[in-house]
């Protein structure tokens, strides 16, 4: 056998059984919708840590969808339940420690004629996937995440407890301003493309 034949035989064991056909079409359609010329309003989400798997299982009902999402730099599978009465969704996933986490959120799109349409779970997840997230870890370090990227920004806060960072996403740079509040929270605002303030104030992270 030649080296090429040996190599091909060895690596021919790498076969994937995952069905990409449906996934690719679905994900591509979701991303296309995201680019539609619609104004997006009222998207708010807060992470509520906790809840047991048992409680979650007991709560299963209504329409559920499964998505692949980036959360804290990791690819996870998120289960989304349509809360029809609340006009929003409940998102749940199990993290790498085996703890179930869930949060609620929703939003509407407003077209040129002012018609409001409830955003789909896919649109919300896509928005969540493609915008920076800030959170702290158990050691109190502050992190910023964008898809698979993670950066420790704990030491980048200035004397006024403000941190400004620029983060390159897919075809867009996000300018993120994070404030360290006295109560230990880290509210932040993120703008794609152009920051409110001078770009020079922002530390480029990648």
């Amino acid at each position: 056998m030649t080296n090429k034949e040996k190599y091909k035989e060895a690596f021919s064991v790498l076969q994937t059984s995952r069905d990409f056909s449906l996934e690719v079409e679905n994900m591509a359609n979701i991303r296309r919708k995201q680019k539609m010329n619609l104004a997006v309003a009222a998207f708010a989400a807060c992470i509520i840590i906790g809840g047991s798997a048992t409680a979650y299982a007991a709560d299963v009902g209504g329409i559920q969808e499964i998505f692949s999402a980036w959360i804290h730099g990791e690819k996870v599978t998120v289960s989304v339940k349509d809360d029809v009465e609340d006009n929003g969704y409940t998102f749940s996933f199990v993290d790498s420690q085996g703890t179930e986490k869930s949060w609620g959120g929703g939003g509407v799109t407003i077209d040129d004629e002012g018609n409001e349409t409830k955003m789909s779970a896919g649109e919300l997840m896509d928005g969540y996937n493609n915008t920076p997230q800030v959170d702290t870890d158990d050691a109190g370090r502050v992190w910023i995440f964008l898809r698979d990227k993670s950066f420790d920004i704990t030491d980048l806060f200035d004397e006024e407890n403000i941190c400004r960072v620029a983060l390159a996403g897919e075809g867009e740079t996000y300018y993120v301003k994070i404030t360290r509040e006295e109560d230990g929270s880290y509210p932040y605002e993120s703008r794609p493309g152009k920051p409110k303030e001078d770009k020079e104030l922002y530390t480029q992270l990648n």
Binding site: T16, R18, F20, E23, V24, E25, R32, S68
Partner: peptide, 13 residues
């Protein structure tokens, strides 16, 4: 597997 999916999505879009 995620890379395979993302690669085909990138082609598709």
């Amino acid at each position: 597997e995620d890379i395979v999916q993302e690669t085909f999505i990138q082609y598709h879009t």
